[in-house]
């Protein structure tokens, strides 16, 4: 088998870190599978949300960050809406992505991460999203230079793509929030791992 579990009492730390970041208590998850049942992305996923939550419950960090599941989550929140235990599963997926990034983990499926980055970069640069620029950057970064290249001219013809980015006077305020949030998430990571460490009695 790919993973063996050797439990030593430390496994609860991963669940505690997720809780510290998201406020979500995964002890509530009884593994009913309703999230996987309703998830639109399961055909592309390796594990599905239910198993992802199980890996967190068992502290299987290595296995967790190997999964493509959190990166394929479309954020539709069907899982969150129907979870019998009111667990915000979509938020857990966000937090797993966030943790993987902060911990410098290798991401098993690169495209969604690249899209996230170029999207937010465009927003941070201009205050508003500049769609043509964002797509061009995406194609460069992903190496898929001709992705959706057929759509571009059609949309231009339809007048659906602006040629120049819009900017906003609040761009600076936005950047400030981005900077602060970045500092906070790093701090929260340190705090969370310290707390988890304390709570697990080490």
């Amino acid at each position: 088998m790919k993973y063996q579990i050797r439990l030593s009492g430390d496994e609860i730390r991963l669940m505690q870190e997720v809780k510290a970041r998201s406020g979500v208590d995964l002890a509530k998850c009884y593994q009913c599978g309703e999230c996987t049942a309703g998830c639109p992305m399961t055909p592309e996923m390796d594990a599905g949300p239910t198993k992802t939550l199980r890996l967190i419950q068992l502290g299987m960090e290595e296995a967790l960050f190997d999964l493509n599941t959190p990166w394929l989550c479309a954020s539709c929140e069907t899982c969150t809406a129907r979870c019998p235990n009111d667990i915000d599963i979509a938020l857990v997926m966000d937090v797993v992505r966030q943790m993987a990034r902060l911990k410098g983990k290798k991401i098993p499926v690169k495209e969604p991460r690249i899209f996230q980055d170029v999207f937010l970069k465009s927003v941070e640069n201009n205050g508003r999203l500049f769609e043509p620029g964002m797509i061009a950057f995406y194609n460069l970064r992903s190496g898929d230079l001709f992705h959706d290249v057929g759509l571009g001219p059609k949309m231009l013809l339809k007048g659906k793509l602006p040629l120049l980015p819009h900017t906003s006077k609040n761009r600076e305020k936005l950047r400030e929030i981005f900077r602060k949030a970045e500092a906070l998430e790093k701090e929260a990571g340190k705090k969370a791992s310290e707390e988890a460490h304390d709570e697990s009695g080490h």
């Binding site: 998201s22 989550c73 479309a74 954020s75 938020l91 997926m93 966000d94 937090v95 992505r97 966030q98 990034r101 969604p112 899209f115 996230q116 999207f119 937010l120 927003v123 205050g127 508003r128 999203l129 906003s168 006077k169 609040n170 761009r171 305020k173 936005l174 929030i177 981005f178 602060k180 949030a181 970045e182 906070l184 998430e185």
Partner: peptide, 23 residues
């Protein structure tokens, strides 16, 4: 509204849920 900025859509909370609320 004047000088609005982008809400960040899905990518923003996928990166950092707190950032989405701040914006």
């Amino acid at each position: 509204m004047e000088d609005w900025v982008c809400c960040g859509a899905s990518p923003i909370h996928q990166r950092n849920p707190a950032l989405a609320s701040g914006v």
